[in-house]
């Protein structure tokens, strides 16, 4: 039965998203493939650029913290003594996924306005494709991360596989936020700028290039700020990744339970809001 019913109430039922996405799965893969093909088409080095940025940042930040401010490293008590470069790279690789995915997803609907204005399809595929294609960058990043980790004398075992379920939480977070922001961007293009600022802010306000313990164990951080800091789901997630990488074990649920809950809520909210607004996006583009 290939009938479509275009009628406000039916199209906006949140659970229809499952059926529509199942129908549009090929299209989703096509769009991801399109983004990947187009991204590095005219470059000589191709996917090298996907990992070049985090590696370059890692080198830069390691230089700053080991050469420029060497004392700062030991200044905070209680932080486990781990390889600083690997720690930074771990934070960068996973942070960069969120940053790329969220900023691409936010603009995905508006950037594809010609499509949205002309063709009927499950609109969700646009932000979803934007969230999915940085996965390739992430996969390459993780490979580089493990290689660097081993090169610096770290250990690797099956415990690393715990990265995957934890990453699912981040993926849900990126998808949920991406759907919400993409929706917002259609109505108010101010959202795109807000997201950029938010990501810049988040880069410093998440333990990307420093361990979480620096905040937790620092006496200089007021209680309120610390609570706010911990409310950021990326804080727990990035620490959990490091736990897995360095300790090869499942991190304590206290670290990842809050991010998981946040992600789930944001994902549901995103799917619901997007479904409600998507059918009439073209009126505003």
């Amino acid at each position: 039965m290939s009938g479509y019913v275009y009628e406000s109430a039916v199209q906006r039922q949140p659970w229809r998203v499952i059926r529509e996405l199942a129908r549009a799965r090929h299209l989703l893969l096509d769009l991801v493939w399109k983004d990947l093909r187009a991204r590095y088409r005219y470059t000589v080095l191709g996917f090298f650029w996907a990992v070049a940025q985090p590696v370059a940042l890692m080198v830069l930040l390691t230089f700053i913290f080991t050469v420029v401010f060497p004392g700062r490293l030991d200044a905070v008590a209680g932080a486990p003594q781990r390889d600083f470069a690997v720690m930074i790279l771990c934070g960068l690789v996973f942070w960069q996924f969120l940053a790329t995915a969220l900023s691409a997803a936010t603009r995905s609907v508006v950037d594809n306005r010609t499509l949205v204005n002309k063709v009927h399809f499950a609109r969700e595929v646009l932000p979803l494709a934007a969230v999915l294609y940085p996965l390739v960058n992430l996969a390459l990043g993780v490979v580089v991360l493990v290689v660097v980790h081993l090169a610096r004398g770290g250990e690797a075992g099956l415990g690393l596989l715990w990265l995957a379920p934890l990453f699912v939480i981040e993926l849900a977070l990126a998808t949920g936020l991406g759907l919400l922001c993409a929706c917002g961007q259609v109505y108010y293009q101010d959202v795109g700028y807000l997201v950029d600022i938010g990501l810049l802010f988040g880069f410093y306000a998440s333990p990307v290039f420093y361990p979480l313990e620096w905040i937790l164990n620092s006496g200089a951080v007021p209680e309120l700020v610390r609570a706010l800091y911990l409310a950021n789901p990326m804080a727990g997630l990035l620490s959990a990744y490091r736990e897995i990488l360095f300790a090869q074990q499942v991190p304590a649920p206290s670290i990842w339970l809050w991010p998981a809950l946040c992600s789930l809520l944001l994902l549901l909210a995103g799917l619901w809001l997007f479904r409600r607004c998507a059918p009439t996006f073209s009126d505003r583009l």
Binding site: S2, G3, Y4, V5, Y6, E7, S8, Q11, N112, T114, L115, V116, N117, K118, V119, H120, P279, T280, F281, S282, D283
Partner: peptide, 25 residues
């Protein structure tokens, strides 16, 4: 099906190809 009516219903049986703007996409 690019947009929805404010009220009322549009029902379409079957696949639609719009030649609205060729090469969009």
């Amino acid at each position: 099906g690019v947009t929805l009516p404010t009220s009322g219903a549009v029902t379409v049986r079957g696949r639609i190809a719009s030649l609205l703007e060729l090469g969009a996409g």
